[in-house]
Nucleic acid binder design. Sequence first.
DNA 1: CAAACTTGACATGACTCGTATCAGACTCTA
DNA 2: TAGAGTCTGATACGAGTCATGTCAAGTTTG
Lengths: 158, 158
Amino acid sequence: MSQQPRSRVANRPVTPGRTAPTRPENTALSPTQPPVDDDAVIEVQGVYIISVAARILDMHPQTLRKYERIGLINPGRTIGMLRLYSAEDIKKVRLIRYLSDELGLNLAGVEFALAAFDNMSAIKQRISSRLEGIPAAQKVVQEEMDLLFDSLNLPVDR
Amino acid sequence: MSQQPRSRVANRPVTPGRTAPTRPENTALSPTQPPVDDDAVIEVQGVYIISVAARILDMHPQTLRKYERIGLINPGRTIGMLRLYSAEDIKKVRLIRYLSDELGLNLAGVEFALAAFDNMSAIKQRISSRLEGIPAAQKVVQEEMDLLFDSLNLPVDR
DNA sequence: CAAACTTGACATGACTCGTATCAGACTCTA
DNA sequence: TAGAGTCTGATACGAGTCATGTCAAGTTTG
């Protein structure tokens, strides 16, 4: 299994459409960095520090670190490199846990499944946009692709 | 982790109809058996007993039996219950081996992946048929779904 | 008839996974 | 600024998985 080159920088390339994470009061380790400088400060990456995320998920912090090491998740970082887990990240970990615990996939399988989901979502998007002018066809594809997602037995949460 | 109900992963088939692309049941090897009936035009595809299949695949017979026990494959049987592996079956085992050896999936992951492939194929089929009257849309879907299959990194052979 | 097959049970070595710990350096909050 | 928490990297452990292997007793095939 190949690994993404680890970036040392607070990252999150992000596909379009990612909504700016909110900042719940809850245990938020306020990344209230004094504005390092100009711009950027706006894009708050995560909300929960690893110990909090682990508690929320009832999982061991080391497990979260391992998931990150093998490229399953990609939490943001503070300037000081502390991991920050967004609600998105938490949700993804829950999906990983479902695939692992409930379906019995190993981590290679989880990686495969996540990639498949992503690809399916992307294709659905692409088809829909290419069928812009043909609403009838768009509807058919929408319906069937939803069926396809259903067929994967994902947890309602997802 | 328990693993009795070997259907944890079993994605529900998208279509109620066909499921396994296994060879027609009545294609018994037994030369002593007269063809069940007319249409049994016997494809000379070849049908192998387990020892031959294992040799072809360079795998242990026990491994093939295990794959069958957990539902990954479904070779035919002679009247006397000897397993009969068709070319289809052989190909499927090769895919299983690829997913396992090359991608590192465990058997639960293989089960999941195979089900996903089936469902994707089925959906592609359904969409195509529902788009019968709109060739332009049909073409778009065809292209994109092929892209989706490509994205799964299947071996050329498959 | 003999060879190869059947099912079912159990065993083995190599590997995976989540968890755990240690050390030394760094970050963040109070 | 003190101290609790986090960082990376290494190492380790128990439990589980997987392919393979063996045994026994019975059946099928050529």
